[in-house]
């Protein structure tokens, strides 16, 4: 509880650091924040070509482009959190070894800066759905629930990888492969069936139910959540709680290791 209060007292610092990250990321670029849209859009075009024209993947009820975009934007958020958070304590060495504030602020600021890109990229979705003639349903109202679960998952992972990478710098390299594997093990650009030989993947990996929930609620005309989603919510919460607890446990040595 004390941990939460201390972090809350430093919320402005988290926002300031998150904004610093966003500003720095798009300084000296022509497109600026437009890159937040351009990147997932470009990926969508690539994957649409690969999985619709070449591999002919079926995405029942949703045009493939919309399917991929709704998968890619939240996934980009997740991947970006993992990558920036893993380096957050190491890159801010001069802060960690010189100034005190609750260290959770650093991974938290990574979540915030990635969330800015997420929000900007999500704006384009409306246009994309109109273009493909997909009408949003009442499920849209439930999207904040999915968002919360994803945020919990992202923050939990951020805490884990940030602390782990400070202890052993291998983590940031393992992550490069790990994130790619994780992406292809989730329903980012193609569906992962909940049945069949790889069915267990959809249950243990919270990203698949989270992404499927976004799609179902936004473009699939669904209203409500299935069992895998609740499992994902449980796992996300577990990752967050254990991540926060572990982060606190190893935090005392940060000043010496950074």
């Amino acid at each position: 509880m004390a941990q939460l209060r201390e972090i809350w007292e430093h919320r402005e610092l988290a926002v300031a650091l998150g904004m610093r990250e966003v500003r720095v990321r798009y300084k000296h670029t022509l497109l600026g924040i437009g890159w937040a849209v351009a990147l997932p859009l470009a990926l969508m075009v690539v994957f649409t070509f690969v999985f619709q024209r070449v591999a002919q993947v079926a995405t029942p009820g949703i045009p493939y482009a919309v399917y991929a975009y709704i998968g890619l934007v939240p996934w980009q958020f997740h991947a970006s959190v993992l990558n920036t958070a893993s380096r957050s304590l190491v890159d801010n060495r001069n802060l960690v070894t010189k100034v005190y504030f609750p260290r959770e602020v650093l991974p938290l600021s990574c979540v915030l800066s990635a969330a800015v890109d997420f929000a900007v990229a999500a704006l384009l979705l409306g246009g994309l759905m109109a273009w493909y003639g997909v009408a949003p349903g009442w499920g849209l109202l439930l999207v904040p629930v999915v968002l919360l679960v994803q945020l919990a998952m992202a923050l939990g992972c951020a805490l884990w990888v940030a602390a782990a990478n400070l202890l052993y710098r291998d983590v940031q390299y393992l992550l490069q492969v790990g994130v790619l594997l994780w992406m292809f093990g989730s329903s980012v650009v193609y569906p992962i069936p909940a049945t069949g030989p790889l069915g267990w993947l959809a249950w243990v990996n919270p990203m698949t139910p989270i992404l499927d929930a976004y799609r179902g609620l936004i473009a699939g005309g669904r209203f409500g959540f299935d069992a895998p989603f609740w499992a994902a919510a449980g796992i996300s919460l577990l990752v967050l709680v254990t991540g926060a607890a572990w982060f606190r446990r190893v935090e005392p040595v940060f000043g010496e290791l950074a």
């Binding site: 402005e12 610092l13 300031a16 650091l17 610093r20 500003r23 720095v24 300084k27 000296h28 801010n92 001069n94 802060l95 100034v99 504030f101």
Partner: peptide, 18 residues
């Protein structure tokens, strides 16, 4: 926490928060 690419003004706010 001063970032070289940010302006003096932006850095004042970040540094102050730190």
């Amino acid at each position: 926490g001063f970032h070289p690419y940010l302006t003096g003004r932006e850095n004042v706010f970040i540094n102050g928060a730190i």
